[in-house]
Nucleic acid binder design. Structure first.
Length: 541
RNA sequence: GAGUUGGUAGCUCAGUCGGUAGAGCAACGCCCUUUUAAGGCGUGGGUCCCGGGUUCGAAUCCCGGCCAACUCACCA
């Protein structure tokens, strides 16, 4: 144990012995937020026409009367006389404006203290921000002033007093009484640099949130974004639902699931990799507009863009289609950017500007590929394609084992996707890649879907959902054969009950998913998904 | 899973060629009644990530391990 913790333990015991309730008592009555109190005080100043002006520099040469400036003798004594608190200031040659008294009670964490003998300044941080406290021996009395100085940085206190403005112009609460609400046993990180060690910021997010205002702001923004998504969808008549996260068959995506075991039923269970198949059951049930915002779990690696659990929003609209969803996501993202971030132009973590102004580019997958690889790409043989891919640096592509489609898709993912910085709807993807979507009416080799790319990342896929029960079964079976023996095998299991639901008839529908964490990264310019997750996954220590 | 970089006081960081471990902040003591990274004087504080090895001697060099960040792979 560090000596500082030991010291604080001793202090805590001493306080207890003196009868102090070191962890606070009853609820704090009449509690205000620092931001509100500051605003009230500033309004009070305004109401009487008070405008703060900086005091004259340190010598008290400011004339109390006209001659005083000419008499430099004994400025110190004059200062003392002037500064005696609680007395009308004698220098009021110019009329003094009385600001109405604003009393307040605040509560928060003590972040810094500057003690000057018989007075002390401290910064209190509450959920709204920082505010300065001023404690004075004359006001508090010897004993309470000593107790105030005895507080530790990090302690949580409530304070009651009167607002004023210091010589330096800072709105400050003069403490008349205070109560220790929670003793901190551990010292805070350094006041200037804060906590910068990224590992510690993630592992001890609570400390990060105490000292780093950026972190606090980030998660408030996150909350605001999620709230406005809900408001937006609510405004369009969508119903929010919650479907199982613990599923007997993990479906709706191709990914490795987390496997667990349910004791009561003595059967294997999976953490969901997507809510899709359950939300579609609700379309069958007659809810035409539903959405869910909740966690998905994928048993895959972590990276700057991946966390094993992440927040997904999926939305379905009966009697809509892929184009319905394009309009929806365009409208949703621009609305959020404007209302929460205040701008349609955002900067990514490299400082590149992204303009979200509608309409967004729409381009077919095959056209992007041709744009990159030449107009004759789809006429080339597999060997020719593999050769061209290798020429681009994709050495691992092998014509002997890779299909045409795999080669093309590898090129899309490795050389095209990350170049789509400005919002782009990539449409008409190869049907094999998307078993849950409707085939394009004019070309059964592609599906009627989009993938929305912004900042080189897939932000949202949207589909014209497949509601053909027989076709869906066939494509599931093809998918199951495709992934058989691979690590995706468990996500290739066929959900018979879902197919049964389709057999009752599902209305044609548009569906879309948004990776919420990535959307937040995009809007806030965060470079790592860990910066937008309160408690990102780390290896246990 | 692979590569690169890093891990030194509560925090932020120095540490030269291998020669008994350093600063600022924080803490403790004293002075200081409008400071704001307050100031002044003084004091204490270390499993140098862990385990081996080389060496008279290792924070430093070598090997192994742990943890993290970044890049790559799986993936959204």
């Amino acid at each position: 144990m560090s000596d500082q913790i030991a010291q604080r333990m001793q202090k805590l015991e001493a306080l207890r012995a003196a009868g102090v309730n070191v962890y606070g008592g009853l609820k704090v009555e009449g509690l205000s937020l620092s931001s509100d109190v500051r605003a009230r005080y500033e309004a009070a100043e305004k109401s009487v026409g008070y405008v703060w002006t900086p005091p004259p520099p340190k010598s008290w040469a400011k004339p109390k009367d006209a001659d005083a400036a000419a008499a430099p003798a004994q400025p110190e004594q004059e200062q003392k006389g002037v500064e005696k608190p609680g007395q009308p200031k004698p220098e009021s040659a110019e009329p003094k404006i009385e600001v109405p008294e604003i009393r307040a009670t605040l509560a928060g964490r003590l972040m810094i203290m500057r003690v000057m003998g018989k007075a002390a300044f401290a910064d209190l941080k509450d959920s709204a921000g920082r505010i300065q406290l001023y404690a004075q021996k004359n006001t508090l009395g010897d004993e309470r002033f000593a107790a105030f100085k005895n507080l530790d940085l990090g302690d949580i206190v409530s304070v009651t007093g009167v607002m004023f403005r210091t010589n330096a112009g800072e709105v400050t609460l003069k403490v008349e009484s205070f109560t220790l609400q929670s003793k901190a046993l551990r010292p805070l990180p350094e006041k200037w640099h804060g906590l910068t060690d990224v590992e510690q910021r993630y592992r001890q997010r609570y400390v990060d949130l105490i000292v780093n205002d950026d972190a606090r702001r980030m998660f408030r923004t996150r909350a605001a974004i999620v709230r406005s998504i809900r408001e937006f969808l609510d405004g369009r008549g969508f119903m929010e639902v919650e479907t199982p996260m613990l599923q007997p068959i993990p479906g709706g995506a191709a990914a490795r699931p987390f496997k667990t075991h349910y004791n009561a039923l003595d059967c294997p269970m999976y953490m969901r990799i997507a809510p899709e198949l359950y939300l579609k059951r609700l379309l069958v049930g007659g809810y035409d507009k539903v959405f869910e915002i909740n966690r998905n779990f994928r048993n895959e690696g972590m990276s700057r863009r991946h966390n094993p659990e992440f927040t997904m929003m999926e939305v379905y609209q009966a009697f809509g289609d892929c184009s319905t969803m394009m309009e929806l996501v365009e409208s949703l993202v621009t609305t959020i950017a404007e209302t929460v971030m205040g701008s349609l132009v955002i900067k990514n973590s490299d400082g590149v500007e992204i303009n979200l102004t509608r309409p967004w580019r729409r381009v077919a997958y095959a056209d992007l590929v041709k744009e990159r690889m030449g107009a004759d790409w789809y006429e080339l043989s597999r060997e020719q394609r593999a050769a061209k891919a290798q020429a681009l640096g994709l050495k691992h592509i092998d014509a002997a084992t890779w299909s045409d489609l795999e080669i093309t898709h590898e090129i899309y993912e490795k050389t095209i996707e990350h170049t789509l910085i400005q919002p782009t709807f990539v449409t008409r993807l190869p049907a094999v890649l998307v078993p849950l979507a409707k085939l394009a009416p004019d070309d059964p080799s592609v599906v009627d879907v989009f993938e929305l790319e912004i900042n080189g990342q897939e932000i949202a896929p949207g589909y014209s959902e497949n509601n053909d029960a027989v076709d869906q079964r066939a494509r599931f079976e093809a998918q199951a054969r495709r992934v058989e023996g691979t690590h995706e095998e468990e996500s290739g299991k066929i959900d018979e009950d879902f197919l049964t639901a389709l057999e009752f008839g599902m209305p044609p529908a548009g569906g879309m998913g948004i990776g919420i964490d990535r959307l937040i990264m995009l809007l806030t310019g965060a470079a790592s998904i860990r910066d937008v997750l309160l408690f990102p996954q780390l290896r246990p220590q």
